[in-house]
Design a protein around this nucleic acid. Sequence first.
DNA 1: CGAGGACTTGATTTTGATCAAGTGTTGTGG
DNA 2: CCACAACACTTGATCAAAATCAAGTCCTCG
Lengths: 239, 239
Amino acid sequence: MNNQRYIECEQCNLFPICDPIKLGEYSYDFIFKQVDRRVFFKRGEVVFHQGDPANSIYALSSGTLKLSMNENNGKADESDRLSLIDFRFAGELVGLSSLTDDVYSYSAYALEDSYLCEILKDQIDGIADTIPEVQKRVITMQNQELKQMQTTMMLMMGRKTSQEKVVSFILMLMLRFRRQGLTETQIVLPMTRIEIGDYLGLTKETVIRILQYLQNKNIIHIQGKVLNVIDKKALEQIV
Amino acid sequence: MNNQRYIECEQCNLFPICDPIKLGEYSYDFIFKQVDRRVFFKRGEVVFHQGDPANSIYALSSGTLKLSMNENNGKADESDRLSLIDFRFAGELVGLSSLTDDVYSYSAYALEDSYLCEILKDQIDGIADTIPEVQKRVITMQNQELKQMQTTMMLMMGRKTSQEKVVSFILMLMLRFRRQGLTETQIVLPMTRIEIGDYLGLTKETVIRILQYLQNKNIIHIQGKVLNVIDKKALEQIV
DNA sequence: CGAGGACTTGATTTTGATCAAGTGTTGTGG
DNA sequence: CCACAACACTTGATCAAAATCAAGTCCTCG
């Protein structure tokens, strides 16, 4: 429960790599040697595009990103639907796949002013070769990402009503905020109703109507971007 | 293009680990030392349950599995919807997460008689500590799985009509069969219409009607479990 | 050969999309 | 600091897509 502007390093998912790794008599302090701290992106700016050379892993220190993919893998010129594949919140990682891929497989946009910590792939590669502990941590981080996606798929796919989807979305937000040590009952939504809809496969009207319904039932209170969860039990019961 | 009963080791996604790894003067031949080859599971049998101690990674030598998760993470006794999160086909991996998790995060069922190669977590751990190359390959394999899930999410979520979903599903099957060196134009569906529906978030009736429609348009021919793709271009055009 | 499950087909209903017409909100330039 | 343009959000009416309900037929395995 903090209201600070930045996620602390200790709360950050890049910490396993940034954290000084002690190996025998050696101690590498990557925080100051390897990481470009707090690169700034303004709202609407692109962190990287799908297809760009993948040179870095980022950790989101503060702010929110949305990740989207072009449907037709690459050729982006045509009238081409974008799908929103995920969001990233403070403390989460972006671009982990750059360790094994040459190019990014999705684009990342800042939904609000955001600070990112950047760590260059080359630098990780260099140290990973010599320190197996770093690779182990990479494996763990990738695994977390895999499980998160599994959970997302489970929540969103399968035969769900739009109401269940929206409620699942709120519960997922709460979970991810709580995991980073932030308050879970009052959430400031950084994304638009359209983006929520794109993510869930619903229209903005449907999203709005369901939020309205939940408000009428006194389960949540929503005013513009500010979402207050009043009755968490009720949300869980719906899903 | 082969019609053999088994995927060859060279086609298998566990090969990067099984493959003898040459490190300086050492050569570890894991195929015969470490891997229990071709464990058999009958149709309907469970390879492992969600929550079971995660002791092994499996590679599917032949057959098909379905992976499903309980919605309420663990307590399985209640009337509890299962969601089908993915399928696994010959040559693909199951349970990679056991490297970093204590228990499996999903259950795996054999949809048809299947042979699996099993490699014990302890054995990988042991060698991975000493050979960074093995860890690198694990990272690559995880990354492949991540990208596959991203693609699945992109195909299935987002605002798609049921027709687009079914067509995407067929194209995904073709891709995954081709990737393992199998024929892509004639596919024997190992799963029921209900399971396809569970995966796509549709009812069996909708799945059937769309397959029927595609058959009437002479794009596919489907007879029970046997699906022939007649006009691949047309399928791609729909998506 | 019989039973249970998988599959199919048609009729009806419901959900959520679409269309339309507004009302906030916000950020920028005069 | 205000005006206004652009965009986000809201609400209602209508429509289409897919779910549900119902009643079978077809496999397949014991």
